[in-house]
Computed example of a mutant assay.
Amino acid sequence: MFKYMKPALAAAAVVLALSGCGNAAASSPAGQASANAPEGLTTSGKLTLCIDPEYAPLEYYANGSGGDIAGFDADAARALAKHWGVEAKFEVTTFDGLMPGLQTRRCDAIFGGLYMSQARLQVADAAPVMKAGPTIVASPANVDKFKTPLDLCGHSVAAQAASSNAARITSLKDECKQAGKDEPRLTEYPKTAETVLAVINGKSDALIETNVAAAYMASQNEGKLAVASKIFPADTTFGVFTRKNNTLTPALAQALKDLQKDGTLAKIATDNKLEASIVDVG
Rank of each mutant, 00 (worst) to 15 (best):
A251W: 01
P184R: 05
E39V: 10
L98K: 10
L121S: 09
A266E: 13
V129F: 08
S139G: 13
G223M: 08
A159Y: 08
V227I: 02
I200H: 00
S204F: 08
K203Q: 14
A76F: 02
D68H: 03
L256Y: 05
A167W: 02
K147G: 06
K173I: 10
W84Y: 10
F72Q: 06
K173S: 10
G71S: 07
Q160V: 15
G22Q: 07
V137Q: 03
L259P: 00
K82Y: 07
D125Y: 00
S219W: 03
F2A: 13
S19K: 15
A255Q: 02
L58D: 05
T93Q: 13
K267Q: 14
Q178H: 12
D151K: 09
L41M: 07
V240L: 11
A166C: 09
A213F: 06
T236E: 13
G239S: 01
T187S: 14
E222I: 11
T104S: 15
A8M: 13
G223L: 06
A33I: 02
A30T: 10
F72D: 05
K181H: 06
K224C: 03
G282L: 04
T195E: 06
Y61P: 01
K6C: 06
V137A: 06
A11E: 14
S28E: 09
S156M: 08
N272P: 03
S28W: 01
G180M: 04
P100N: 02
P53W: 10
D258S: 10
T148G: 06
Q103K: 15
Y55D: 11
A79V: 01
A198S: 12
G223E: 08
L114D: 05
K230M: 07
F72K: 08
G101D: 07
F95R: 11
A141L: 12
V86Y: 00
L207C: 04
R78W: 00
A167D: 15
C21F: 09
R243Q: 12
A179P: 07
V281F: 04
R78Q: 13
L9K: 12
A226K: 13
E209K: 12
E275K: 14
L121M: 14
D258W: 02
S204Q: 13
P250I: 05
E54V: 12
A81C: 08
G97D: 05
T48R: 15
A79N: 01
C176N: 04
R120W: 02
C153Q: 03
S34F: 00
R78K: 11
C21A: 13
T43P: 05
